[in-house]
């Protein structure tokens, strides 16, 4: 079950710069911490975040162990056409979590 919050304006004017926000619940375990039993807590982080607009990738980011838990990413896009904005978060083992939102452009 993906626990992600994405915020995309429902409506925008053609050519408008819109702010997109995305946050996912994730421990972002660095791999450097020692657990209660004295052994390292295995690393478990989101490595890549990407956003596509009607199927075309328009924003991406590589994430590293220094990023805090529940990474929150905000960026802007130019609204061109109505459609779907998809978000993907890929973790260390390649597992992908997704979310999406619709935008109406007029």
């Amino acid at each position: 079950m993906a626990r992600a919050l994405v915020n995309v304006p429902k409506m925008a004017r053609q050519g408008e710069v819109v702010e997109i926000k995305a946050m996912i619940a994730h421990p972002m375990e660095t791999g450097y911490r020692i657990g209660p039993n004295g052994s390292n807590i295995p690393r478990d982080i989101i490595r890549r975040f990407a956003c596509s607009y009607n199927g075309e990738e328009v924003f991406s980011a590589d994430l590293f162990p220094a990023v805090s838990a529940n990474p929150f990413i905000a960026f802007t896009l130019v609204a061109t056409t109505s459609g779907t904005i998809d978000f993907t978060w890929t973790d260390d083992v390649g597992k992908i979590q997704t979310a999406s939102a619709m935008i109406t452009v007029n």
């Binding site: 079950m1 626990r3 992600a4 919050l5 915020n7 926000k21 946050m23 996912i24 619940a25 838990a69 529940n70 929150f72």
Partner: peptide, 16 residues
Amino acid sequence: DDMSNPGMLWVLQGEQ
């Protein structure tokens, strides 16, 4: 801001 309040992730999970 509900969009940046990480607690909302738990509220969302609770809703599910």
